[in-house]
Every structure is written in C-alpha cells, then in structure tokens.
Nucleic acid binder design. Sequence first.
DNA 1: TCGCAGAGTTTACGTCGTAAACTCTTGCAC
DNA 2: GTGCAAGAGTTTACGACGTAAACTCTGCGA
Lengths: 262, 262
Amino acid sequence: MTEAQVWAAPGEGSPEPASRRERVRAAAYDEIRSIGRQLLATEGLGGVSLRAIAREMGMTAPALYRYYESREHLLADMCAMFFNELSDMIQAACDAEADDDIAGRLMVASRAFRRWSHEHQAEFTHLFGSPIPGVFGPDTYTPEGFDPNNPAHAAGIRFGAIFMRLFVALWRTRPFPIPADDQIAPALRSQLDWNLPGAEEIPPGARLLFLSAWVSLYGLVTMDVFGHLGWALKDSAPFFEYELEQLCTKLGIAYAPPTEEL
Amino acid sequence: MTEAQVWAAPGEGSPEPASRRERVRAAAYDEIRSIGRQLLATEGLGGVSLRAIAREMGMTAPALYRYYESREHLLADMCAMFFNELSDMIQAACDAEADDDIAGRLMVASRAFRRWSHEHQAEFTHLFGSPIPGVFGPDTYTPEGFDPNNPAHAAGIRFGAIFMRLFVALWRTRPFPIPADDQIAPALRSQLDWNLPGAEEIPPGARLLFLSAWVSLYGLVTMDVFGHLGWALKDSAPFFEYELEQLCTKLGIAYAPPTEEL
DNA sequence: TCGCAGAGTTTACGTCGTAAACTCTTGCAC
DNA sequence: GTGCAAGAGTTTACGACGTAAACTCTGCGA
C-alpha cells in the first residue's frame, strides 16, 4: 500500500452487464464481497482471510488475485459497499418523510444511522472504528485530503453529503441561532471554509454547529456499538432520544418521538 | 479466550521486589511491554507479534509464554499500562491546579486527555478504538459488566473514576442546571442508578449530563485521532476549545483559555 | 480454426500463534 | 556442600495466513 495503486472495483449494481464473461465476473465480485461480509460479522476482521473466502467459494486463494490486488483492496471495497448501503438506507428513510418536513427528515436520518449501526455492528466498526492501515487509515489520505480514487473515500464522501444536505435545507427553511462570525475564535473561524458541496450555502456558525452535532452523534453511536456505554446503560435507545432532543433544541426544531412501527 | 482465564500480570511499579529472581522477572515484563508498545506505535497492532518482541529481546517466541498465557493477555496488559499512564497523567495535571478550583481542574483534565491522545495515537486507539476480541471486546465482559479480574477493565474503571470524581466535586461546590427527575423519560431515568463510586452523590439529571459530556469528549477526540476530522479541520485544537467552552456553559462555570506553557 | 486472454491451480516462501518436549540454571532444604 | 525441584529458555513442529511465480485449462473473437 505504499505505492500508488489502482482501486479498480465494480460498483455493485453495474447498469448494463455487456458480455457473458462480464456478468459472471460481476457475480464473482458480489460473492466475494458477500462472503467477506459474512466472515466479518461472524469472525471479526481477522476472519476475513482470502483463504477462507476462497474455501467458501470452492476455489483456491490465489485465484482471488484475479479480482483484488490484495486483501487490503478487498477490505477497502467492502468499506465502499457498506457506506453505500448505509447511505441508501438513510436516503430511503428520508424520502419516506414529507418533502417539506426537514426536521422530521433529520430525526429520521439520525435514527436510521443509529439503527443500521446497531444491526450491523461489524460493518459499522469497519467504517467508523480504528483506521485500518492501507484500507481507510491515515496512510490512504492524499495531501489534499480524501483520495477520490479510493472507493472507500468516495463512498464516505457521499455518506457525509447526506447529512450536510439536510443541514443546509434546514438552514434555508428555518435558520437557527448560531454564533456570529466575530464570536468564533479566529483560529477556528478561518478553518471553516470547507469546499464541501453545499457547505458554502450556510454561514460559518452553522457549519460549526453541524460539526458539533456530527461529533456528538458519532461519539454516541460509536461508544454504544463499541460497548463503552455498557457500564452506564443497558438500553441506549432512550439516551439516544435524549441526545436527539437536545440537538433539536439547539436547532430550534420540535422534537418528535419515533413512530414505532415494527 | 473462551475459557475462564487468569490475568496474572504485575502492576508496573511493584513495591518491594523481594528476591533477585522476582526483580529479573519484573524487568522482563517491563521490557516485553515496552517493546510491545514501541511496535504498536511504529507498526500498528498487527506488528505486535510475540516473535518480533522475542527477536528484539534476543529470545525465541515460545519463551514469552513464561510471561503471558497468550498474545491476547499481553495486549490486555498493555491496555492496563496505557490506562494507568493516562490516569496518572491526568491526575497529575489536576493536582497542579488549586484544590478549590474545580472548574480549572475539569478543563485541565479534559485538555490533558486530548493532549495524551494526540501524542499517543497508537495507544489511544488501543484503548478507545474498535474493541479487540479477547482483549477488551464485548466477549471480555461478564454478565454483570466489567470483569475486575481483567487488568484492562480494572484500569479503565480507575480512569473513568477520575472524571466522575471531578464532576461530583463540581456539583457539590456549585450545582449546575440539570433536568428534573420528572423531565427525564422514565425509560432513561430508571437506567441512571449506576453503582459507580461517587455517582450516588449526584442526582440523576447530573449523571445524565455527565454521560452527555463524556460522549461529546470521546466523540471529539476519537474522530480527531482517527482522522475523521481531517476533511473539516487542519488543526483541531480551536474546535476542541470551542467544545470545551460549550461544556463550561452547560455546567455554569467560567471558561478559561489554556495557559500556554511550552 | 487458431490463438490469446482470462480464470483457476499448484507449488513455494516467509510470516504468525502456540503446543510439546527438551535442556540448562538457579535457589532452597537438608 | 549436595541434591533436587521449579523456573527460564530452546528446539521442533503444526496449521493458519498473504502472496509471488509458473503453470494449465477454457471459452471467446478474428
């Protein structure tokens, strides 16, 4: 992973599987990813070995090198897969809400995020846990930041954009109280000029609140999934709702408890 | 790690090294831990192999089984080592402040936590990152929660108690606004009866605030160390101070910028 | 029909954790 | 002092792992 590498890998749902060969190949990719995911869930990251996957497929391990340059490339592709699934899931949950109910969409998105994380702890850990060297770790960043050629990075950006869009939409429909520009410490203020899509549409104070909210949400869900909350809470759901309510207050929107459909 | 196991390992600074044998043995433990730590920092968790440690010590790998039952036991002991170092560090920073300046101690402790985490990213990741199966993961918890026999758990409890003590002290000197008992959702309220030392001295609403504050601090430092903040901030220190200021506001204490001594 | 590219296998090397049996050394009881 | 048991370390070995290199087979297009 020290050399510049190619991250060629197929987006899961390719539009037009041209030749037969290509269809078979795409199916193989799907099978590899799927078995890898299953191993991740049952055995942990260490269990995701090329040999185990090959065994499960009735192949030998070196054959997998026809599909992935290395184990790390497979793990990165799995990152992308999870990010995309998570993004699709959240987006779908949002789209089920009324178009103009941004507050509702924000709450639904947050809950969907927590829900997915709980139901897919291994996958969540893969995405948001300790950086995996060569896969999604600091060594995979370019000097400019994200590496758009890395599928994990690309999918991660897409994920972040969902929340950012919601935040921007909320600001536009009903601005909430934010720290004024001259109330933000200059050293902080000067860093808030992100060139993230959408970010330029809201003032720096709102971006600060976005960051703050995301850090809390991340901290909460991460501690929960990692078991770092077990000493305090048996069921973290009520605390999550409490935190969500706090966030709503900060954003000047009305908190609404979750509609429980089983 | 599926069987009940003994976590025998020496606390680093044993008081009275009785026999010569014991002193040599204690020195060996220190060397193992120290080389393990170095490998963790330079090569990552995967680089902490018994063979590499033994190589560095001029021994063969199986010899290390005289000291640790398995690699997992070594990693757990390293957890304890890091927790203790972190706790000592924070405690020392606190003790440098005036006895009655609880607000100052709280801020100093938070900054010390962030500082140590930044300066010891590998160690921080080992403690607060993805749970390591058999070491500090969900499988190491007993049905009652922490496993006091696991040195990593014991040291973790000690670490948590530092912040809890500060919080309790703050509450006693100057109570801050908290949600009233009947304003907390019953499902949440009923979970706040921790049997953590000190927790019973503050009301449930204060415990809720403690949890909330810790989640934010954890989320912030973790995202930062894991590089998940790089897209937004080049230097996270001002944002950390911003969050600290928010916390101070919630706790009704006066925020004071850090005294910069190099 | 030829040939070539793609898919998969075989073999091999060096890594790892760790179990079992062995040897050397040290310190204590007599 | 002598003997002996316990402790420390080694040797050898097994089965995992990632992956490199060379090989074989198969199916598609010219």
